[in-house]
């Protein structure tokens, strides 16, 4: 899932200064799971904003809505009739949702309420770690299901490097060396011969370096 983190309330207050009607818009997907932009967080932010403006003696109306998703036309359409009524919309969705909102609703400024961080997993409650960099050319099949692109600090494809020590990475003694994990995993699977294969130069044209990407699937297009 996409992992996001809450933005400080001060920053959001700065965005919406001077607005008289604000919509705090949550998303029921990834940001709900990582407890940054779901219905609960919408309630907390809206309450904080209400108290702030009341304390400033300003009469500001703050509404709360949480959509199923903010990265799909049909769900964004749910606020079509009311979006223009607001002076600002604070979207607690990931960067995708904020941008999709902004593309759809031109007359209202859309402000981000979270910092979108990475594609990751919930290791435990309150701890999310990166697992994928969406490089567009998955090599997990030969690395025992552990991604050197996202989990190795150097993204090296034939590791480990000289900075690997006791299974940890040189950038942080608490960070596992991805290549140590790969070797251990391949050993456990009895597939160490995969480690012997030299990985040739990766085609990075599918990565972000090639500019904004798109996936076109004519088979599912209507």
């Amino acid at each position: 899932m996409i992992v996001a983190d809450k933005k400080p309330v001060e920053e959001i207050i700065e965005y919406v200064q001077g607005c008289k009607k604000i919509l705090v818009l949550g998303c029921n997907e990834c940001v709900t799971v990582c407890e940054a932009g779901g219905k609960k967080e919408v309630g907390v932010l809206a309450s904080a904003l209400r108290m702030y403006f009341l304390n400033q003696g300003e009469d500001v109306k703050i509404d709360e809505v949480t959509l199923e998703r903010q990265c799909d036309h049909e769900y964004l359409e749910e606020i079509r009739d009311v979006a223009d009524e607001y002076d600002a919309i604070v979207s607690l969705a990931c960067g995708v949702g904020v941008q999709f909102m902004a593309e759809k609703y031109h007359s209202v400024p859309i402000y981000p309420g979270v910092n979108t961080c990475f594609l990751g997993a919930t290791e435990q409650r309150g701890l999310w770690t990166e697992r994928c960099q969406a490089c567009g050319n998955c090599m997990l099949a030969i690395t025992g299901g552990i991604c050197p692109v996202s989990r190795c600090a150097k993204r090296i494809l034939n590791g480990p490097c000289g900075g690997s020590s006791n299974g940890k990475c040189e950038i942080d003694s608490n960070l596992d060396c991805a290549w140590q994990l790969i070797i251990d995993r391949l050993k456990a699977l009895g597939r160490l011969e995969d480690y012997e294969k030299i990985c040739s130069i990766k085609d990075w044209s599918t990565d972000r370096a090639g500019g904004p990407r798109k996936v076109v699937r004519e088979d599912v297009q209507i």
Partner: peptide
């Protein structure tokens, strides 16, 4: 923290 931020 929130209450401090909003001035309460």
């Amino acid at each position: 923290k929130i209450l401090t931020t909003v001035g309460i």
